[in-house]
Design a protein around this nucleic acid. Structure first.
Length: 714
RNA sequence: GGGCGAUUAGCUCAGUUGGUAGAGCAGCGCAUUUACACUGCGAAGGUCAGAGGUUCGAAUCCUCUAUUGCCCACCA
């Protein structure tokens, strides 16, 4: 007669067991693949998308952890050498601006008052203390991450990898320095990439005017203040209205500033827009810069890094903010009778995602990665763009759901050279040194006196893009590199496909001619129960820590998995989490009941009756169905199926019928054996989804020489 | 302007390769010396947005329409 464990007689309380169980797992060492000595199958690797060091756990993280941990646990139980590698991201602009704001608020100082060295020290200190917060929150989700391999995008190992990569690409002619129109963020005082901008719809006015009375062609612009930097007027070469002027140059005075305007023909100009004539401002518009390149025109910058006018003959303009300058110029035009039309239009204005500042396109000397430049690669001539395309097209990487492959291709096709330099301090400093007109690019500083390192840092996605292999010790030829790269799966949100996924493909294909991962699984965004975005202003943000504390981590994980198909957004309400807390209770109570009804069971050799055997066979079918779903990354179906079977089939049918037979001593031992067998196998099957409660129950039902459920065979 | 989705019960959503429409919540009826009220049993509720097509058979495949969401884009 076995005693039912005392703990089981109390109601289930998740909070009581979670930290203790996590500690047991961690101390067992099985999160580290080096300790999985019985793992005979090939490695299965996921590199965790590194959260920002400054962050705290949100529902997006929770989804990512639930999906990845479920897959990792499943693979580990299946005998794969399983590596799930954690790390954090220095998130350059985000982190620096948090610390800058803090210092501004507490000490009233700017980063320039503090100085580069001291500032970097402060940011690093902040990053380190902040990191502990997010990592312990990741632990609380039950994440079976190999903490012994923890990486940071800005630590020494990663910095060495970044410098090595920069040098290698520079030597291949893929990294170059050039003057281009970049997205300048006057608020953040830095360049940002196209992907870091968001367009905002705003009302604007399209002004149609002439520079001066003696200039023949009226032009239209929403930004008349930039027109003092005009060098040409472009018209369509076939435009009958303006054909006769092409090739002529006019000297005129526009709001007190002398400008020299050449009339040129260019097919980029649309006859139907505005007056059909485009004032060319190379320094303040990307399209105009291209026209300038085509026609060999000069360029005059009239707006500085603080979005103020400068260098103009009309002293009244100098120092004015662009918006004030616009008002000033419009009123001058009106006075002089040069303003022909004002038309209200909706315009899309690019703003900086991070700071909200209105982007000022400016010409700047920056570092770029050439994506369209042919180079020799593993014995063949190719371009980076081709490599990125080929990885997905050739199915060496598959994207789940596959409709995102189209999105990926679409983005690749429109890809332009990637500006990788940033004018902020926190990040990987560009490994380039200057002395007079000499330029030195190297992994380490050059010998000799008088060299000064480039002040800029690299775009944070440069280091993140190398993440699948920089975390494994590249450029050293480590055992981890040999064993775990390419990785098996990248699991992340679909909003990050361009920023990150494509860049990882770029670096890995370039370096190894192999993609960084075999599969990409994209999950959706979490929305509230009504389908709205979670936002602080609406007040509908669900904090996973609260939910976990209130309903248990297992319940939270289930609520994030069930019904959450790849690529679709997930609507999450508190009721859903609550429903899975009830499920945890059900598991707990069913376990107690089964143990009570079988505490006199001893005859383990007994064979099942025909009926019991059929029931068992039906379960095995359901089990292989679930296995198949997990193998195909259909966790939303697998989780629902095990939930449904446990509750509706096992509890409501099997237990109900067998308890009668046990009480009536009607083929009692077969019934007892069936219940024990099914309980054991379901606890194993539930483990990847609900790791805590199942590991706890395992201690009550396991055989003496069974290991932790964590490493029990699936 | 281009691209990608969504539309299934009152609400929120599943539905894996085409084979008798499912779940949770809400609501209705019944049960209660009960493993679990954090429960069980039962009933009700849907021309699967609309129209056309393919098929023996369509929520599922194709075309169009309507509504709706998201992403990308240098129209000055």
């Amino acid at each position: 007669m076995k005693q039912v464990p005392e703990q089981l007689t109390k109601p289930f309380n998740a909070v009581d067991i979670e930290s203790r169980i996590y500690k047991n797992w961690e101390e067992s060492g099985y999160f580290n693949p080096d300790n999985l000595i019985h793992a005979t199958k090939e490695p299965f690797t996921i590199i965790l998308p590194p959260p920002n060091v400054t962050g705290t756990l949100h529902t997006g993280h929770a989804i990512m952890l639930a999906i990845q941990d479920t897959l990792i646990r499943y693979k580990r139980m299946n005998g794969h050498k399983t590596l799930w590698l954690p790390g954090t991201d220095h998130a350059a602009i985000a982190t620096q601006s948090v610390v800058e704001k803090k210092i501004q608020k507490e000490e009233g100082k700017s980063r320039h008052d503090i100085g580069r060295e001291e500032m970097l020290y402060r940011i690093n200190e902040f990053a380190r203390s902040s990191q502990d917060t997010i990592l312990s929150q990741f632990r609380s989700m039950g994440a079976s991450l190999d903490w012994s391999r923890l990486a940071f995008t800005l630590d020494d190992t990663r910095n060495y990898a970044v410098r090595t990569m920069f040098k290698k690409m520079y030597d291949d002619g893929l990294i170059y320095r050039g003057e281009r129109i970049v997205n300048w963020d006057p608020k953040g005082q830095t360049t940002i990439s196209d992907d870091e901008t968001v367009t905002e719809e705003r009302k604007g006015i399209l002004y149609t005017f002439k520079y001066s009375h003696d200039f023949p062609i009226p032009i239209s612009s929403t930004r008349p203040e930039t027109k003092v930097g005009d060098v040409a007027v472009a018209v369509h070469p076939d435009d009958e209205r303006y054909k006769e002027y092409i090739g002529k140059t006019y000297e005129c005075v526009f709001v007190g500033c002398p400008i020299s305007i050449q009339i040129i023909g260019d097919t980029a100009v649309e006859k139907e827009f505005g007056t059909g004539a485009l004032g060319v401002t190379p320094a303040h518009s990307a399209i105009d810069w291209d026209i300038k390149e085509r026609h060999n025109l000069p360029s005059k910058q009239v707006i500085n890094e603080y979005a103020k006018m400068y260098g103009l003959a009309n002293e009244e303009l100098n120092g004015k903010k662009v918006t004030d300058a616009r008002d000033y110029i419009v009123s001058k035009l009106r006075e002089e009778g040069l303003l022909i039309e004002e038309k209200e239009v909706i315009q899309s204005i690019p703003t900086a995602e991070r700071t909200g500042g209105v982007i000022e396109p400016l010409p700047k000397l920056q570092w770029f990665i050439a994506v369209n430049k042919p180079f020799a690669h593993f014995g063949k001539e190719t371009t980076l763009k081709e490599l990125m395309y080929r990885a997905v097209e050739g199915k060496s990487t598959t994207i789940i759901p596959d409709r995102f492959e189209k999105v990926y291709f679409n983005w690749i096709e429109n890809l332009k050279d990637w500006c990788i330099s940033r004018q902020i301090w926190y990040g990987h400093r560009i490994p380039v040194w200057y002395r007079d007109s000499e330029v030195y690019v190297g992994v380490t500083a050059p010998e000799g006196e008088g060299w000064a390192q480039d002040d800029d840092t690299l775009d944070t996605w440069f280091s993140s893009g190398m993440w699948t292999f920089s975390t494994l010790g590249w450029p050293n030829n480590t055992d981890d590199m040999k064993l775990f790269h390419p990785t098996s799966l990248l699991e992340t949100g679909h909003d990050i496909i361009f920023f990150w996924v494509a860049r990882m493909v770029l670096f890995s294909m370039y370096t190894f001619n192999q993609p960084p991962f075999k599969h990409v699984y994209l999950h959706g965004l979490v929305r509230d129960a009504q389908g709205r975005k979670m936002s602080k202003s609406i007040g509908n943000v669900l904090d996973p820590r609260d939910l976990s504390f209130k309903y248990g981590t297992d319940a939270l994980r289930m609520s994030l998995l069930v019904g959450n198909g790849a690529g679709n957004d997930l609507k999450l309400g508190e009721d859903k989490v609550k429903a899975y807390k009830l499920f945890a209770n059900k598991i707990w109570n069913a376990t107690r009941f089964v143990l009570e009804k079988t505490n006199d069971f001893e005859n383990t050799a007994i064979t099942l009756t025909e009926e019991d055997d059929a029931t068992y066979t039906a379960w095995r079918e359901r089990h292989s169905d679930i296995t198949n779903d997990i193998e195909h990354y259909r966790l939303h179906l697998a989780s629902e199926k095990i939930y449904d079977y446990f509750w509706k089939t096992f509890c409501d049918e099997i237990i109900e019928t067998r308890k009668v037979r046990i009480m009536e001593h009607n083929q009692k031992e077969s019934a007892q054996k069936l219940l024990l067998l099914l309980l054991r196998e379901q606890i194993i099957t539930l483990h990847p989804f609900m790791p805590f409660i199942t590991e706890e129950i395992w201690t009550y039902i396991k055989e003496d020489n069974d290991p932790l459920l964590l490493v029990t065979h699936w």
